[in-house]
Simulated scan of single mutants.
Amino acid sequence: MPTRSAAVLTSGTASAARIFVAALAFTSAYVGFSAYSNASSAPEPAARVTLSARELPVTAPAQQAATPGQVTVSVLTGAGAGCAKSYVARSLVVNADPAEPVSYHWRLARWSPSARTWRTYLADHDGFAAPERTVEWLPQVSGNPGWYRVELEIDGGKTLRSDRFQVSC
């Protein structure tokens, strides 16, 4: 009987080994087929996008060349209805020491007939660190007609003033 049990054990082990090899071959084939399927699949077609554009009129004047020592003021057309008007003030600021930053202060001044002096209506400040820069400011006047001017004070320098302009409704 020892030979018979050894033969059954050997045939059982052989069957188990065959089943294991078959399962391994099936798994390898499945993995290989999946990789081939993913590698050969075509990308999804690109979605078609249609772009449209429309022309808009230019609402700002062409940028004027700024000069040092002068402040220019222009009205932005179409910026507001009635008394609401937007302006652009420009000047070229030259930094006396390019290694140091320069700061500057804008002031929109309104003429006061009763006090007979220019009074601050709006103010802003900014700065930069470069040899020179064209600086801009966009003040807005709404519902307050009168005479105005823009002043630019550069730290360590003099105050530059624009020509006066009238805001009316």
Rank of each mutant, 00 (worst) to 15 (best):
T117R: 13
S74H: 06
C83D: 09
T50D: 13
T59H: 07
R107S: 11
P45Q: 14
A79I: 00
T77A: 15
T120Q: 10
W137A: 02
N38K: 13
A47Q: 12
A47L: 12
A60E: 11
P43E: 09
Y121D: 10
A66T: 03
R48D: 14
E55D: 07
D124Y: 10
D126E: 07
V141C: 06
Y36I: 08
V49N: 07
H105N: 09
N144E: 11
L51W: 11
L108Q: 02
V141D: 05
Y104P: 01
P131V: 02
V88K: 00
A42L: 15
A115F: 08
Y121T: 00
Q64V: 14
G82R: 09
A115W: 03
W147P: 00
V71W: 02
Y87Q: 02
E132R: 10
A47K: 13
P43V: 07
P131F: 01
W118E: 01
V58F: 08
A129C: 09
P139G: 03
T59V: 13
V141L: 08
G82A: 09
A99L: 14
S37Y: 14
A65H: 09
Q64W: 05
A65S: 12
T117P: 00
V102M: 06
P68A: 14
A39E: 10
T67F: 11
Y121H: 12
L138N: 10
C83M: 02
G127I: 02
A39I: 09
P101C: 05
D126Q: 04
A123I: 08
L138Q: 07
R119E: 12
W106C: 05
A115V: 06
T67C: 04
A46C: 07
Y36L: 14
A62F: 11
H125W: 08
R116S: 13
W106G: 04
Q64C: 06
P139K: 05
N144V: 10
L108D: 03
P145E: 05
N38P: 00
S112N: 15
A35R: 08
A96G: 10
R149W: 00
P45R: 14
E100G: 01
S52F: 08
L122P: 00
A115Q: 15
L108H: 01
V73W: 01
A129N: 14
V75G: 10
A42F: 09
T72M: 04
P43R: 10
S91W: 01
A123M: 10
D124M: 08
T50W: 05
A84P: 00
G82H: 04
E151F: 00
L76I: 15
V71A: 06
G80P: 09
V135N: 00
T117D: 11
C83Q: 07
L51C: 11
A123G: 12
P113L: 02
E44R: 13
Y87D: 02
V93T: 01
R90D: 13
R54A: 11
L122E: 10
C83A: 11
C83I: 02
N144D: 15
N95E: 01
S142N: 13
V49C: 08
R90I: 05
A60M: 12
A115I: 02
A60K: 05
W147D: 10
N95G: 05
F128I: 03
A53W: 04
E55H: 08
